[in-house]
Structures are given as C-alpha cells and as structure tokens.
C-alpha cells in the first residue's frame, strides 16, 4: 500500500483503474498527456484558448463517462483522437493545419544556405528541426509530429487524420527523403545533433 504511483504500469491497467472510478488514475493520465495534447493542439489550431477549452472538456467528459467507457491499451491514441475530433467540431476541418512560425523560416533562410554549420546547442537544434519541417507540407508535419513526438503508430495516425494507412506511410517516406537531402546538402551530421542533451 506504500506506493500509489502509476509510473511503470501499462496503459491497460491504468485505464481499468480509471474506468473503475479512481480519481488518481485520472490525475495521472492528465499530467502524463495534457502537456502533449496542448502543444499538439497549439500547432494545429491558431486559437489557443479554444485548444485549452477542448482539453478541459475532454477530461471533464472523460471523467463524467468513466463508467461507460470501454477498454483501451493506448490511452495516448484515444486522447489525441478525441482532441482532434473536438477541434474539428469547432473549426472547419481544413483550418486544422499544422503551422510553423513564419518568422522562423525567414530568419533561417540565410545561415543554412551552402555553408557548413555547427549545431551545438539545444536551441540551434530546435531551429534546425523547425527549418526541416518548414520544407514539408502541413500534412507531412502533422504526421511526423504524431509519429515521432507523440509516438503513435502509422495505423493510429491514419485513423486520427482520416487517411489511408498506405498514404500515411508514403507521406512519412517522402518527408524523410526530403529531410535527408536537406541534411546532406548542408553537410549537417546527425551524430553530433543527437548527442546534444
């Protein structure tokens, strides 16, 4: 009884605890995923307050219906799909576009051109990734975020974005080819990039 912590438990058992009415399971799920839901929401929807309202609604409703929910072994997938649906109900679907800050692109059209640059800090790496993403389209950025930052599978992403599974794979494939070409052109070595903490 000493340890009430859920860290290390799998999604299925945390979810079961939650649907049986345990409020600390709700709190655990919230603090584990809310920040990722917010940061994803901000990327696909310009109305920040709307995103925050929807995240709030999502968890309030989740709790209100906890005894009527089925099982899931991927809480993450469940939450991201719900948030995306909620946002799509409030704005036109075509407005949910994965944006990259425009000023970032302008700022960095210079330094990355035709010169070997040293990427040594976290913020430089962050800017590089933003620059890489700027070379992709909205849909590709959306997919890469869900795939690598959130960690969802291709099938889950296809479900969330209402796409064919094969189209998701193709989009990832094309994005990676583009990114590799960019890195090669600018002679940016990945091994130094990923060592930065």
């Amino acid at each position: 009884m000493m340890n009430s912590s859920y860290s290390g438990k799998d999604d299925l058992s945390i979810w079961r605890d939650f649907i049986s009415g345990n409020q600390s399971a709700l709190s655990f799920i919230y603090f584990k995923y809310a920040k990722y839901l917010l940061s994803y929401g901000y990327k696909i929807c310009r109305d920040k307050e709307l995103v925050e309202d929807k995240v709030q609604d999502l968890f309030v409703q989740l709790w209100a219906r906890h005894d009527r929910l089925g099982e899931t072994d991927s809480i993450k997938f469940y939450l991201f799909r719900s948030l995306r649906r909620k946002l799509a109900e409030s704005v036109k679907v075509d407005k949910l576009r994965y944006a990259v800050g425009l000023e970032v692109i302008d700022q960095f059209s210079g330094p990355f051109e035709n010169q070997l640059i040293e990427i040594e800090t976290r913020s430089e790496r962050k800017k590089l990734v933003e620059q890489l993403l700027a070379h992709l389209n909205d849909n590709q950025r959306d997919i890469l975020h869900l795939k690598y930052t959130v960690g969802l599978s291709n099938h889950e992403i296809a479900d969330i974005l209402c796409m064919e599974h094969q189209s998701v794979k193709n989009a990832v494939f094309r994005s990676i080819t583009k990114i590799r070409k960019f890195l090669e052109k600018h002679q940016i070595s990945l091994s130094t990039l990923t060592k930065i903490g």
């Binding site: 990734v129 690598y148 960690g151 990945l190 990923t194």
Partner: peptide, 19 residues
C-alpha cells in the same frame, strides 16, 4: 535511429508556458 531521435526530440510540451 538518429533521424527518429532528432524528430522526436523537439516539442514544446515541456515549455514553462505549456506546463
């Protein structure tokens, strides 16, 4: 592996404002 790490590393979830 390095590509996956690079793309998975960057997010604003841990930013102070988000927290």
């Amino acid at each position: 592996r390095q590509l996956v790490l690079l793309l998975g590393n960057e997010n604003d979830a841990e930013d102070r404002d988000t927290l």
